[in-house]
């Protein structure tokens, strides 16, 4: 790993000051992606600003019909939180399936969504549950947050503070893991709320996306059978040694059906 300056921030304000003072600084959340990337010399920031001391970023709360998850809340904490388990069990289940237990003990929701790995699980939750990403500057609607591979709407000096998840009527997440890395080859969050049906797909393309035709079909008939004969277009789907675009397209259908059945 290249040398860098480590700065520990005690608050969001301190973190922003520290980052602004660096030439090429990065926020350090759980470090589950950033540190391996730096070990491989694929990222060489000159400063890491550790957010672990910013206590206002940690924790889960229920605010009426919304679950608010602080950016520095670990996956393990989300998975085991009783409010999450009661209100959005699909979110708790998704968090309990990210990476492995050691990753879940360190990795955070803020770090995950700011990184926007196309194969990460949380983007499916954020988009599928129609969450709002709250930053130090503004609130960003889920559909506007994820832009492309490792690219989000976050600006240079913008920091995810929390994510607000409206509580759906029902929801479920199903993932087909990459057999080697265990990241999602395809992960699908299906949610039904007063506003309608959402089907958010991660892993399959450059960024999380909504399967419009599936949403329409499920709006008319919320059942796995309603998806028979439907498929997502494989043209824009990822291809690698683990899965062709056609296989991913199939998996999007299968995982969606299974998520609907689990709702």
């Amino acid at each position: 790993m290249e040398a860098f300056n480590y700065r520990k921030a005690g608050s969001v304000d301190e973190a922003l000051v520290a980052l602004n003072g660096a030439d090429d600084g990065k926020f350090l959340a759980g470090g589950m992606t950033l540190l391996p990337t730096m070990k491989q010399m694929l990222a060489t920031p000159d400063t890491l600003v550790d957010l672990a001391g910013a206590s206002e970023l940690v924790g889960v709360s229920r605010d009426g019909d919304t679950i608010v998850v602080g950016a520095m809340t670990t996956h393990a904490a989300v998975a085991s939180n009783s409010d999450v388990q009661a209100a959005i069990p699909a979110l708790a289940a998704l968090a309990s399936g990210i990476g492995d237990p050691m990753v879940r003990n360190r990795g955070t929701i803020g770090g995950s969504i700011a990184n926007a790995d196309p194969a990460a699980d949380y983007p499916a939750a954020v988009v599928g549950l129609n969450a709002t990403v709250n930053t130090n500057k503004r609130s960003i609607a889920a559909d506007d947050f994820f832009l492309d591979v490792f690219e989000t709407a976050l600006e240079e000096d913008e920091l995810v503070v929390s994510v607000s998840f409206p509580i759906p009527l029902k929801a479920a997440y199903r993932k087909f893991p990459n057999p080697a890395s265990r990241y999602a080859v395809v992960g699908v969050m299906v949610a039904q709320s007063a506003e309608g049906i959402r089907v958010a797909v991660t892993g399959a393309a450059a960024s999380v996306f909504r399967a419009d035709s599936f949403e329409q079909a499920l709006s008319a008939d919320f059942s796995a059978a309603a998806l028979e004969g439907l498929s997502v277009d494989s043209d824009n789907l990822n291809e690698d040694i683990h899965a062709s675009a056609a296989y991913r397209a199939n998996l999007v259908g299968v995982m969606t059906k299974r998520a609907v059945a689990a709702c």
Binding site: G31, M32, A52, P101, N105
Partner: peptide, 28 residues
């Protein structure tokens, strides 16, 4: 060197973590 094998698993404040994916500074 990709944080996957778990041979470096230790406990930090009672929870299992991979010591290869944590800075000493974070363990202060």
């Amino acid at each position: 060197d990709t944080s996957q094998c778990g041979a470096c698993t230790i406990h930090v404040n009672g929870s299992a973590v991979k010591a290869c994916t944590m800075l000493v500074a974070q363990a202060d």
